[in-house]
Design a protein around this nucleic acid. Structure first.
Lengths: 163, 163, 163, 163
DNA sequence: TTTT
DNA sequence: TTTT
């Protein structure tokens, strides 16, 4: 029964607008990157900032909410779990890995910006999900997109106690 | 000033004994893997288990504690932050990535096992850290070991472990 | 829309067997206390231990699982949210407060003990919930038990995004 | 050795400006309340909001930062531990309890507001801490203020706030 | 690629 | 590669 805990909590800013896709099963997926910054003193005592970039994945209803409300630059809280995918790189024949954060909760922070066409404006009504990318690897050798939720949809993570 | 939060909390079992090294600066590093399991119902309603493997890195005093008390199989709680390293794979010329969990707190769970040569038995007195691995890449294309703490030591947050 | 985060994560040992009740609506409630210990150096540099006691409340299926598997002394991980109740103390006419942790996730730690009538042994089959306590206050002035989940049942906490 | 975990993570808004005091030992303490809101569907399916109020306590450098940068209404992330104090109510002779969140990390969220005398404006230079309150109980029967950090300073974990 |  |  050996359970475990695999929890990630991030507060950061989106590096890009969420990209939405619909996988063959009909599920919606959203992908975006999130930057978390931390300040620290280096060995010389000077302040340094280090930014970590996280690959965020949301499924289902949460994906749709991300697509609808989140924009590049937006500050969010994200809770989720770490998930590492692997695939065979066709070009080199090597096994490759990518680590994603699969979101289980998301909170927009800082309220809506005052003026402008600010993010979170609920615009985007005419959102149309990108075409399902043809599965060949692009030249940039980005990890392939998810084609199936690896832990099927557990959108609510909690009532799955193993009993 | 833009701060952020980058926090990971895991409960799982060690997949191997921690490997300790001392880097040129004199810092101690410990590496081990941690398995977190979750149960879920698949689309057919059957119970499935999915195991996620995490690469754990501890520095300094915490590394020494891990080396001294943790063993393959031991259940632990680990708190830390996500950190993705990249390097150029000499063989393929490609950029590669590995995601580690840099530990800031660690708790041994479940108490000491009763009998046997149980883990956490405080044996290991004769621990000797592995030799500093020659930096060439092994054939298995494992990520190279860390050679420097990327966020310099951050005082380990919790070197007040009660030992 | 003002969302928030109210999250508690505890690892500790039960101070007593869970007490189960069924409230008039038919919902099951489990109550137990959980001790979390921390070590620290006092001002004189001596090691001290401080134990904090938490009042844990679980509802529904989770309450039943707690009743079935948890025992005094058992080490568990508990995730939940802080909730403060208030009531009027009939005796003194004063307003009183009690702070509970409402569980949303629970993990048993340390595996089943090897021998003995160890906790978590799945015995207890003949469990029968205590009678609904007559609501008068006992002389010890303990907080009255919950009679309703204050945030109705949200057993899975996650799909309640406010949209 | 029995370790434990006692962790709280909150995102909410300050209910009042932080109140600072200096205790006899010279330590600075900051107190404020934080509201976390959650939305949920009640039994009739209607959206409801429930606000939970938390009593926040910060010590040392972190207290000073709170005093300097936080204002009523500000949205913050707070990490800390739960701590319940008890004292004898002189008036009724009863034992009373109050549960605080002792901060170990704090992040201001949402950035500085654009115009106005917005919070977090770094004004306040002339901040002067309130007089040390004479220790008699006020009529409202509020819990008495802390007079000593109960877990002595634990080096504040994160006084590396980037200021 | 974000943010301050 | 762990654990139940």
């Amino acid at each position: 029964m050996a359970r475990g805990l695999n929890k990630v909590m991030l507060i950061g800013n989106l590096g890009n607008d969420p990209e939405l896709r619909t996988i063959p099963s009909g599920q919606t997926v959203a992908n975006f990157t999130l930057a978390t910054s931390e300040s620290f003193k280096d060995s010389s005592g000077a302040m340094q900032e280090r930014t970590e970039w996280h690959r965020i994945v949301a499924w289902g209803r949460l994906a749709e909410i991300c697509g609808q409300y989140l924009k590049k630059g937006r500050q969010v809280y994200v809770e989720g779990r770490i998930q590492t995918r692997s695939w065979d790189d066709q070009k080199t024949g090597e096994k490759k890995y990518a680590t994603d954060i699969v979101v289980t909760d998301m909170q927009m922070l800082g309220g809506m910006r005052e003026g402008g066409s600010g993010y979170g404006d609920g615009g985007q009504q005419s959102y149309s999900p990108p075409q399902q990318p043809a599965r060949q690897q692009g030249p940039q050798d980005a990890p392939p997109p998810q084609t199936a939720p690896s832990a099927p949809m557990i959108e609510n993570d909690k009532d799955d106690l193993p009993f």
